[in-house]
Design a protein around this nucleic acid. Structure first.
Lengths: 185, 185
DNA sequence: AAGTAGTTTCTCACCCGTAAGGAATTGCCA
DNA sequence: TGGCAATTCCTTACGGGTGAGAAACTACTT
C-alpha cells in the first residue's frame, strides 16, 4: 500500500521538514518546529477526525462546541454570547454566526436579558439537550481511540506539558493588547 | 488588569471544563479532554500569535506555509500542487486557492509540466524567495519566544510525546478511506 | 487504435472565522 | 437631567477551508 509521496503518513514529516531547513538554511536553528510543527499537524489530524465524527449527525464542530459549553454549564443550560466567546476563544462575530445556525436548527434559543437588554442569553432547547447528551458520549469515545497509541503514563505527561505550553503561549512578553483580544474579551 | 471572565487566561480553562463535565455527567470519563482539549486550545493560541506575526508583512499563514514548503525544498524552489497538498495536510481545493492568491501577489508562478500536462509546478519568484527568506528567521524567533515558558528538557519531552500523538491520530483503527483523504492523497 | 480507468487540478456551493465598525443599551458623572 | 464612555451584540466585507464532481490529460487493456 504504498506511499507515492511519503511525506505524510510516514514516520515523521516534521523530522524531514527540520532536516530540509537545516540543509537549506544552516545558519538558522529550526528546533522550535520540533514542538510547534508537531502541535500544528497533530491539531489538523485531530480536527479532521473530530469533525467527521460529529458531522455524522449533521453538526459542525463549531456547533458542537457551543452545545457542549451550554450542557456542561448545568441547568438551566444558559450562557450569554459573551461567555461563549470567552470559553471558545473566538470573536464575537464568530459567536453570532454559530448561534444563528444553531437557532435555525432549533437546538438553542436566544433570549434577551430583561434587566440589561444588551445581553443575549442562549439556552439549550430540549432537542439541543438531547442531541448533545447522546453526542458527547460518542465524542469522548472517539477521542479515547485517538489516544490509543499512548500509554496512560504518557497521556498524563503530555497533558501536563501541554498545560505548560498553553501557559507559555498565552501569557507572554509582549504586553500589547493582542493577546487580550485573542482570548475573547 | 483584572479578569472579569476568568475562564480564559487563568490557571487552566481545561481543568475547569473537566470539572464541570464531571459534575454534570459523572457517568462519563472526560479524561481524553485533558490531552486533546489542551491540544486544541494551545493550537488556537499558537495560530493566533503566528498569524499576527506574518500578517505584519501582509502575508497569511496559509501563504507562508506554501512559501516555506517551496523554500525548504531547495532549488529550483518548485513543487507540484499535489505535493503541496500532501505536505500541508489540506485538500486540493485548498491548494488551488492558496496558489491563486500567491500568484496574484507575484510570489509564485504556476508552470504546466511539459511531459505530463496534468501537473502544475509552483515555483518561487525572486520576490517570493526574498520574502520567505527574511520572514522565516523572524518566524523562528517568534516561535522561540512562544516556548520560553518551557525548559529545554521539557521541550524535548513534549516534542517526543507530540510525535507519538501524531502517529496515534494518523494511523488508526478505522480502515476506511477517511484518513487517506485527510492526509491529502 | 479505441475505450476505459485513473490521475491531477480546478470549479462550485457552502461552512467557518476575523476585523472593523454600527446600533442599542447601560452607567457614570458633571 | 443630560451627555458621554463603555459594553454587548450584530452587520459587512473579506480570507480561508472542505467535499463533490467536472475537466483535462495519461496510461492501461484489449
Amino acid at each position: 500500500m504504498a506511499g507515492r509521496v511519503q511525506s505524510s503518513t510516514d514516520a515523521d514529516a516534521v523530522s524531514r521538514i527540520i532536516e530540509e531547513w537545516h540543509r537549506q538554511r544552516p545558519d538558522l536553528d529550526p528546533s522550535p518546529i520540533e514542538v510547534l510543527g508537531r502541535l500544528h499537524r497533530s491539531f489538523l489530524l485531530y480536527q479532521s477526525r473530530t469533525s467527521k465524527s460529529v458531522a455524522a449527525v449533521g453538526l459542525s464542530l463549531a456547533g458542537f462546541d457551543v452545545l457542549a459549553a451550554l450542557r456542561r454549564s448545568g441547568e438551566p443550560y444558559r450562557l450569554t454570547a459573551g461567555e461563549l466567546a470567552a470559553t471558545s476563544l473566538i470573536s464575537s462575530a464568530g459567536v453570532t454566526l454559530r448561534l444563528d445556525r444553531l437557532e435555525g436548527d432549533g437546538l438553542i434559543v436566544r433570549e434577551r436579558d430583561v434587566k440589561d437588554r444588551r445581553v443575549v442569553h442562549c439556552r439549550l432547547t430540549p432537542a439541543g439537550l438531547e442531541l448533545i447528551d447522546t453526542l458527547f458520549a460518542e465524542y469522548l469515545e472517539n477521542e479515547r481511540s485517538m489516544l490509543a497509541g499512548l500509554k496512560p503514563k504518557e497521556r498524563v505527561q503530555l497533558a501536563a506539558l501541554l498545560q505548560k505550553l498553553e501557559r507559555s503561549l498565552g501569557s507572554t512578553a509582549d504586553s500589547t493588547a493582542g493577546v487580550v483580544t485573542l482570548v475573547g474579551w
